[in-house]
Structure formats: C-alpha cells, structure tokens
Measured scan of single mutants.
Amino acid sequence: IEEVKKIVSEIQSKQLTRITINGNTYQVNSPEELVEYVRKVFS
C-alpha cells in the first residue's frame, strides 16, 4: 500500500495522463480515476 501511495503522489505531482500498471497503459483524466484503476489492480 505504501508503494501505491508513492506512485499516486508521483503521478499527481507530475500531472501524468497515462499510467502503466502490469504492462497495461491506462488513460487517466483525474486523480479520482487513477485511484479507481489502482483499486482494481490491487484489490
């Protein structure tokens, strides 16, 4: 979970619009959307 928080804060600070998780690239339009992807991947 700490690793996830680190990734999320990194993305928020860079305002990235794409994230790659487990080889899948997602278009991310908002931090909320990012959190949803993270929940799916780590749930």
Rank of each mutant, 00 (worst) to 15 (best):
N24P: 00
V35I: 14
I19T: 00
Y37R: 11
E10P: 02
G23A: 02
S43K: 09
E32W: 07
I11M: 02
Y37G: 02
T25Y: 08
N22V: 02
T20H: 05
V38C: 10
N29L: 15
R39I: 14
E36R: 10
E2Y: 06
E10I: 13
N24F: 14
E36Q: 06
E33R: 03
L16I: 05
P31N: 02
R39A: 06
E2S: 09
K6I: 08
E36I: 04
N22R: 08
N29S: 12
V35W: 09
K6R: 14
L16Y: 03
R18H: 07
P31W: 15
I21V: 05
V28Q: 15
P31M: 09
S30L: 06
S9D: 13
I21C: 11
E33I: 03
E36S: 05
K14H: 08
Y26R: 02
R39S: 08
P31Q: 01
G23I: 01
V35R: 01
N29K: 08
E3A: 12
T25L: 10
S43I: 11
V28K: 15
N24I: 15
S9R: 13
S13V: 09
Y37C: 15
V4Y: 14
V35F: 06
Y26I: 15
E2T: 08
R18Y: 06
Q15Y: 04
L16W: 05
Q12S: 06
K14F: 03
S9V: 10
I1Q: 12
Y26P: 00
P31V: 13
I1F: 13
E10K: 06
V35L: 09
N22S: 05
I19Q: 00
I19D: 00
Y37A: 12
I11P: 00
E10Q: 08
S9H: 13
Y37N: 03
S30V: 06
T25P: 04
G23V: 02
I7Y: 08
E32T: 06
E32H: 05
I11S: 01
N29C: 13
E10F: 11
P31D: 02
E32N: 06
I7E: 02
G23T: 01
S9P: 03
I19F: 03
S13F: 09
I1R: 10
V41E: 09
S9G: 09
E32F: 05
Q12C: 14
L16P: 02
V8R: 02
L34V: 02
G23Y: 02
S30E: 03
G23C: 09
S30T: 12
E3H: 12
V41T: 06
T25F: 11
N22L: 09
S43T: 09
N22E: 05
I1A: 12
T25E: 08
S13D: 11
S30G: 03
V41S: 05
N29W: 09
L16F: 05
R18I: 08
K6A: 10
Q27N: 08
V4N: 03
Q27S: 13
E33Q: 05
V38S: 00
Y26H: 09
T25G: 02
N24L: 15
V8G: 01
N22D: 08
V41D: 03
T25C: 15
S43Q: 13
N22A: 08
Q15K: 12
I21D: 00
V8Y: 05
L34T: 00
E32I: 04
S13M: 11
R39N: 11
E2V: 11
S43H: 10
Q12Y: 15
N24R: 14
K40G: 07
I19A: 01
E2A: 09
I1M: 12
E10L: 13
E33F: 04
T25M: 12
I7R: 02
Q15E: 06
L34Q: 00
R39C: 14
R18V: 12
Y37I: 15
G23E: 04
I11V: 03
Q27K: 06
I11D: 01
V35M: 09
I1E: 13
E33H: 03
K5M: 14
V41H: 13
L16K: 05
F42A: 04
I1S: 13
G23R: 01
V4M: 15
E32A: 12
T20S: 06
I7T: 03
P31S: 08
R39W: 13
E32P: 02
F42T: 04
I21K: 00
T17E: 01
Q27L: 07
I11C: 03
V28I: 06
V35K: 04
E33P: 00
R39M: 14
K5P: 04
Y26E: 01
T25W: 08
T17Q: 03
K5G: 11
E36L: 04
Q15V: 04
V38I: 14
I11R: 02
